[in-house]
């Protein structure tokens, strides 16, 4: 028999005051699949490994969902999911390092943890330029420290506000602003060098 619908039927919607309803894993998966998938890539997981990492994240969510404090709002759930994602990506990187593979691939091997640079990645004609742009930015992000990469991903790709970033990575607003500025400067410097190299190659 069909249950009467209620305005707060979505398991992710905040329940009415005084009511605490268990979160449903399926709803969390549907809501956060995109968030987890795209940010796994952005945090440095190679396209060939992203399926595994995304699955790992949702297995952890599945196990720990009953522990999640549901009194928070949707942003709290997103921060919680992000924390699991960031830990899973770190673990993925550690495992990858143990296999003595380079962090930034030096060939077009699709199993590498980080994308190859554009010149090394044979891409189909259609959409090649965009893929090269994506690969370039991801390879530059991969050269940054974990902390700086996370800040740039959350601020400039996920377009979170600084207070939202604070909820994800910890720290106060001023510290995050300051670190974000340093991270942007470093990324800008790296891109400047890449562009300079390209100009020299064109002139040569």
């Amino acid at each position: 028999m069909q249950q009467p619908s209620s305005p707060t039927h979505s398991p992710l919607a905040r329940p009415p005051q005084g009511e605490l309803r268990p979160l449903e894993f399926d709803a969390v998966y549907t809501e956060f699949f995109g968030f987890v998938f795209r940010n796994a890539r952005r945090l440095g997981v190679d396209a060939s490994a992203v399926d595994d990492v995304v699955q790992d994240v949702f297995v952890v969510i599945f196990r720990r969902l009953p522990e999640f404090d549901q009194r928070g709002d949707g942003a709290a759930l997103r921060s919680w999911v992000y924390g699991i994602l960031a830990n899973t990506v770190r673990e993925h990187r550690r495992r990858y390092r143990r296999k003595d593979a380079p962090l930034v691939s030096t060939s077009a091997d699709s199993s590498s943890a980080f994308p190859a640079t554009p010149a090394q990645s044979p891409t189909p004609e259609e959409g090649a330029e965009r893929r090269e742009d994506v690969d370039l930015l991801l390879s530059l992000l991969a050269e940054l420290s974990e902390e700086k990469r996370e800040l740039l991903v959350l601020a400039d790709l996920e377009q979170m506000s600084v207070p939202e970033i604070c909820a994800c990575v910890g720290g106060n607003v001023n510290t995050v602003y300051s670190r974000l500025r340093v991270a942007r400067d470093e990324l800008r410097g790296k891109l400047e060098r890449v562009l300079l190299t390209r100009k020299r190659e064109e002139l040569a």
Partner: peptide, 27 residues
Amino acid sequence: ELSRLFDATRCGTEPAPGDEARIRASL
């Protein structure tokens, strides 16, 4: 250029239409 790269990466890292179903099945 940096702004352009961010825009491209924002779109280029989104899952493809079949990704969710494929991963859901494996999961």
